[in-house]
Design a binder for these strands. Structure first.
Lengths: 346, 346
DNA sequence: CTGAAAGCGCTTACAG
DNA sequence: CTGAAAGCGCTTACAG
């Protein structure tokens, strides 16, 4: 075999094997319509030439890509350099799930303000899109509607696309909020506060809030006694929110935060004011990001199963692409009791 | 304009604009050889049809992809569900750097044992490959040589490809080790231990070890007084290594760990044995992963600048692809003093 | 400044 | 079981 200039093509193999290029193509995709001997010969030559199917050519012909795109968008206010650890964990599980199913993953960060919605599938770079991120849901929804109108294949994490539950994988946030509320009640706490946006601009956080309120009401605590303050999912926002709450003269002995990052910032602010966690204020977070177990005190939190979530996102997107029915998936949250709530022995 | 069945192509635009398809193609790429009026008309129609260039077709024709592949491989022993936070941070900065340069990023996890080396560029899915990961360098090197032989465009983080510094972006690990050693010496520590493989199976860790030894020798402390134990970059390995060191009857008041993950595990093991950090043992890690500031005590560590590293990886790979000379890049490490070394006030 | 034509490397009816 | 041929949707010499 003489070395060829440039990469080998199926024609080179055909020439060397003494068959037609069509046969080579069939053999390489292991078509049952090809004689085993012919196949063996072709495989051997392909291996020798270090031949790889040109994906651009095969995708162009097949009109498909074998690739999924992950669009990760963030609140534009967030520091550029840091990605929310929760999404990073999701990224990990999504990447694994893709590999397992023989798909490639195209990853891209986006600002919510950009025109991210249109391009990946239309330009044939991906068969479908996975959306991941926090941000104002009202802005988000608009893009989602464009995607819907363009019949792009997509799934998203967390927030439901109005009237289309099949496009979403989400945690049971209401249940998560209930778990947090109930647990805090069990610790004998009476005066509650919640950090995180609790409006339809942030449906996930809202559900967490509502879940907690639900638990409190069952225990005879009225919603109007609960202090609530908006916070995006960053440490800084949690820190600031506590200071604001105190400036407003609000007092509380139980604090439920819409995310761990908020909780960690809040704990810092509380400690800076000389308050003890959990003695003075019991704190529960949400997500169970890796740092949660390292904060002081270790953070009690509502865990979201990122492995399952990532897996389901990929599985459902693939089903959508293949026009198969999807399972409606809701991930069940789980409370991880550590020290910040005052329950576990220290 | 009547809506077209399926996606619009450049022929549809040509028909609508009353020009040839060649002209459309030129106009869309903003070729100076096209009349501005014609361009305007074509752009307007393209927008109306929500036209997007088919990347498979254009890549096939241009024989390029506009895509970079990131191969993230891990020690197979590591728990499947967790990715080393340091690499996750790198992933973030690489993704950003790619977007900024108009490239897509294909991400893939690999076991070091797999045949990952060949496919991405050969199959025309990417113009080049970024390699990221820990693992036995001896195994790694072999793959790298294959890549080299195949003339694949690639860059890698950390370990130098024998005789080819241009393919690597690395921290000055030797300097990092020195900083750690010097700092520990300044705290008055005399009896040193190092956790991490210090052989050519792990050149980065080895250099960190050597840097520390170098600092110690300058202070008159001989290398043979230093306790060293292998550990891969996980908490568990750090935890186990401490127990083993104690079982061997080794005692030390200064501990330098080849990574933060090792350090965090080591601190847990020390504390479990009733030893105080930093009073009994001062600990310094390496990487400055996000959890480092949250461990108790907060971890003093040698920071690697992941933003710069990710950026340089992308920049150099792009240069390699375009046959331009690359800058030899070495990232300068920086010591972040927190509490685990006993230096900062608590 | 514009058009007709070739061709990138495959996959897949169609025919035998 | 195999081959000849068309065609996926572009880009880019070549010619005018």
């Amino acid at each position: 075999m003489t070395p060829l200039k440039g990469k080998a093509t199926s024609f080179d193999i055909a020439y060397l094997a003494g068959v037609s290029q069509s046969t080579v193509s069939r053999a390489l995709r292991d078509s049952p319509a090809v004689n085993q001997e012919t196949k063996d010969k072709i495989f051997a030559i392909a291996k020798q030439l270090n031949y790889k199917v040109d994906k651009n050519a095969s995708n162009l012909r097949k009109q498909t890509t074998g690739t999924l795109a992950l669009l990760l968008f963030e609140d534009p206010t967030v520091d550029e350099s840091q990605i929310n650890p929760f999404f990073l964990a999701m990224l990990g599980s999504i990447t694994r799930a893709c590999s397992q199913r023989g798909h490639d993953l195209l990853v891209s960060f986006q600002q919510l303000s950009n025109d991210w919605h249109a391009d990946y599938e239309d330009s044939k770079k991906a068969d479908g899109i996975i959306l991941l991120g926090y941000g104002d849901y009202k802005d988000y929804e608009e893009k989602l509607n464009t995607l819907l109108a363009q019949q792009t294949h997509f799934v998203c994490w967390g927030a439901e696309v109005h009237g289309h539950p099949e496009f979403t994988i989400r945690s049971n946030n209401l249940q998560g909020g209930k778990l947090a509320g109930q647990h805090l009640l069990q610790q004998g706490r009476k005066r509650f506060a919640f950090l995180g946006n609790a409006s339809d601009h942030s449906p996930e956080f809202l559900a967490r809030y509502q879940g907690m309120v639900h638990a409190l009401e069952q225990a005879g605590i009225a919603e109007n006694t609960v202090a609530q303050l908006d916070a995006i999912s960053t440490e800084q926002a949690g820190f600031d929110a506590i200071n604001q709450l105190h400036a407003q003269g609000k007092s509380f002995d139980a604090l439920f935060c819409a995310s761990d990052l908020i909780a960690i910032g809040a704990i810092r602010a509380l400690q800076k004011k000389g308050l003890k966690v959990p003695e003075d204020v019991a704190v529960v977070g949400f997500d169970d990001i890796p740092v949660a177990s390292f904060s002081s005190p270790a953070l009690t939190t509502i865990q979201q199963n990122t492995s399952l979530a990532g897996e389901m996102l990929v599985v459902n997107l693939l089903k959508l692409i293949n026009h198969q029915p999807v399972e409606l998936t809701e991930i069940q949250p789980k409370i991880i009791v550590r020290h910040s709530c005052g329950a576990a022995e220290r």
